[in-house]
Nucleic acid binder design. Sequence first.
DNA 1: CCAATAAGTCAACGAACGTTGACATATGCA
DNA 2: TGCATATGTCAACGTTCGTTGACTTATTGG
Lengths: 191, 191
Amino acid sequence: MPDRPAKTAKSQRTQAAILQAAQELFATQGYERTTVRDVAARAAIDPAMVMRYFGSKEGLFARATAFDLQLPDLSQVARARIGATLVGHFVEIWEGARSNGSLVSLLRAAASSDDAANAIRTIFGGQVVPMLARVVPPDELFQRAGLVATQIMGLAVTRYILKVPPVVAMDRAQLVKLLGPTMQRYVVGKL
Amino acid sequence: MPDRPAKTAKSQRTQAAILQAAQELFATQGYERTTVRDVAARAAIDPAMVMRYFGSKEGLFARATAFDLQLPDLSQVARARIGATLVGHFVEIWEGARSNGSLVSLLRAAASSDDAANAIRTIFGGQVVPMLARVVPPDELFQRAGLVATQIMGLAVTRYILKVPPVVAMDRAQLVKLLGPTMQRYVVGKL
DNA sequence: CCAATAAGTCAACGAACGTTGACATATGCA
DNA sequence: TGCATATGTCAACGTTCGTTGACTTATTGG
């Protein structure tokens, strides 16, 4: 069941509609509870179209959760502001204008899918670790990257999935102020 | 579909076997991917027994994820050791001898179930917040509880669900040393 | 010992799911 | 305008799921 490419402008629009519907549903319900039929209904097309364009439900999920963190070059950031910069950047990725909810989708899915969990590990190894490598000595790199992961993923889980009220209530500036020092210590502080 | 109580010693053993199988499967696979048939097979009984004793799959899940955090009385802990004490206590709960994996089950399920997410919020409101209330002034209580949540849940997610390698590799003493100061600041430090 | 009650088995149900292939319709190029 | 190709529809498939009710076997108290 290979994917079939979109060849006309109209088909690209419906393909995009399927992708957007899938991202919204995967982000709010996770992989298992999101059905191909639901995605098709939200995109106002036939379930068979999903199979035509994405081959399978797994193929759709893979396409719906592909993204680039666009992490900053930390060597160009003032050392004292690294923690705040990172917190702000991650919040932007999760809920900013350029975001499509795909990271939350993937996190939701990772709770019950080893493939999705592995995708997150790959993102960390391929994007977060290289980012930190520019300002962290190699012998501490993985440990500090792990610490960064605990705080960043913890923020994501409590704010977007568990919706713990005080965490949801914080605005972006508060998050930077409260979590920035933690991130600062995890990246360049004394352990 | 009301539950049917266990009346004999033998039935209590099989009921316990079902519960243990359910906790193991819910903890490793989440709610959706765990089937009643799987639980029954692991407990070496008929799927119908699950319905007899727990009424429904949801009823089984509710029973399998009930627990008490047994949080310490922070007013009896030296102020400088609060952070380390809390980190150690939570790690103990997740992987200690008294643990049955039910907290990880619930966290996994929360990714795709609003009911499970609500159960976690209730635990936080009913157990974590009261614990902190003994050492935190009321006007900062909810914010500090939220911060504690971000770090604790982040540790759980990266270590037990995403299995981020450097986080998995840390032993209990390292976790206390590395995350303790963060927790200390979130509970009694300057924000 | 024998009824009464509990524990456990079995086959089957209806529903929902991902997926498929045959078919209809629209579009773009010669 | 015609024809080839792409787009979209439809009904149905095989599977798996939670759940049910009738049945059989074991246990226990009088």
